[in-house]
């Protein structure tokens, strides 16, 4: 059987995997075009890592099918392994070895000759900005350097499809920036990448398409801007001075915009989608003044990816919870 679309570097059909009672994957359908970067986005326990483990032949699915580079993952795992690179959540960097020795170790296991392994190690050190640190033991590397070394060691054979599981989890902003820069360069080279992330800015920065997963299935898919427009166009944002004014402000916004606002009690912020920027803004400003609500700030803007994410993944109704907090 051939994969559903021959141009897809990664394709899955109804992928299912259970761990005891819990369904980690519950009929996941994916299609990642060759040469594109797909961000698999979802909260903890959404099934992101399980999906990567199935696609990299580490785990057998209970149901459904999966193809990587056109090869059936279940039927020819060895074939898949020769086409892929994997950087998992934990860095497999060997602290006792130097950066160069780490790369040579992996290159030898990819069956490069000693000479070719050394040459490839030098190329990758250069590509990932590690040439100066090449002969230092990895235990002296920063978090960002270790991550880059780990990513470099998965790219020995320039894989056709590269899997990255939460590439910058646990890194500080500076180190995240370093890793992103390295990944952008890689992506520019045309490698197909599937990366999982919990960070929306990461997906926004690097991914061509974003697949939002929750409960082991796909709940949304699209480019970052497509996803942003799924929860409506412009939004009004109101920042009130006193927490006690939140219910009154919410009532005003609901009346003027016609939709129930989302409330962040801690930040004393309210937000709601609006259809007409100007009339919504003037209407809300006037109505809040009439209601005697003191406002710190007010504005109309495009939604952020964070809001899309919360909108899509929150199973309960966040508004009710916040209101209870405010009332309490």
């Amino acid at each position: 059987m051939t994969p559903p679309t021959s141009t897809a570097a990664i394709a899955t059909e109804g992928l299912g995997k259970r761990f005891g009672e819990k369904a980690a994957l519950d009929g996941l359908d994916l299609s990642v075009a060759t040469g594109s970067v797909c961000g698999l986005l979802g909260p903890n326990g959404a099934g992101k890592t399980t999906a990567v483990r199935v696609l990299t032949t580490l785990l057998r699915p209970d149901s459904g099918r999966a193809w990587v580079a056109g090869i059936d993952v279940a039927r020819d795992p060895a074939g898949v392994r020769s086409q892929i690179g994997l950087t998992g959540q934990a860095a497999t960097v060997d602290n006792v070895l130097t950066g160069r020795e780490n790369l040579i170790f992996w290159a030898r296991l990819f069956h490069l000759s000693p000479r070719a392994a050394a040459m490839r190690a030098d190329e990758l050190l250069e590509q990932f900005g590690l040439t100066e640190a090449a002969d230092r033991r990895a235990k002296f590397y920063s978090g960002g350097m270790r991550r880059r070394l780990d990513i470099a060691s998965s790219l020995i054979l320039a894989p056709r499809v590269f899997f990255l599981d939460e590439p910058t989890t646990g890194l500080d902003p500076r180190n995240r920036g370093e890793v992103w820069a390295a990944l952008r360069q890689l992506v520019a080279g045309g490698t197909t990448v599937l990366m999982t992330t919990q960070y929306l800015d990461e997906a926004d920065q690097l991914a061509d398409t974003i697949v939002v997963v929750n409960g082991g299935r796909k709940i949304a898919e699209g480019t970052p801007s497509e996803l942003k427009s799924t929860i409506g166009g412009d939004r009004i944002d109101v920042h009130v001075r006193d927490t006690s004014d939140l219910p009154a402000a919410a009532a005003v916004i609901a009346r003027v915009t016609g939709s129930e606002p989302e409330v962040d009690a801690e930040l004393r912020r309210l937000g709601a989608p609006v259809s007409n920027r100007v009339s919504a803004l003037t209407g809300v400003v006037g109505a809040l003044a009439d209601a005697g609500v003191a406002v710190e700030d007010i504005g109309v803007r495009r939604p952020t990816l964070d809001e899309v994410f919360l909108h899509l993944t929150d199973t309960g109704n966040p508004n009710t919870n916040v209101k209870e907090e405010v009332a309490a």
Binding site: T57, A78, R81, L86, G88, D94, F110
Partner: peptide, 10 residues
């Protein structure tokens, strides 16, 4: 995660 890396390699 070294064992996983090994297992994903040819």
């Amino acid at each position: 995660g070294t064992l996983d890396r090994f297992r994903s390699m040819p």
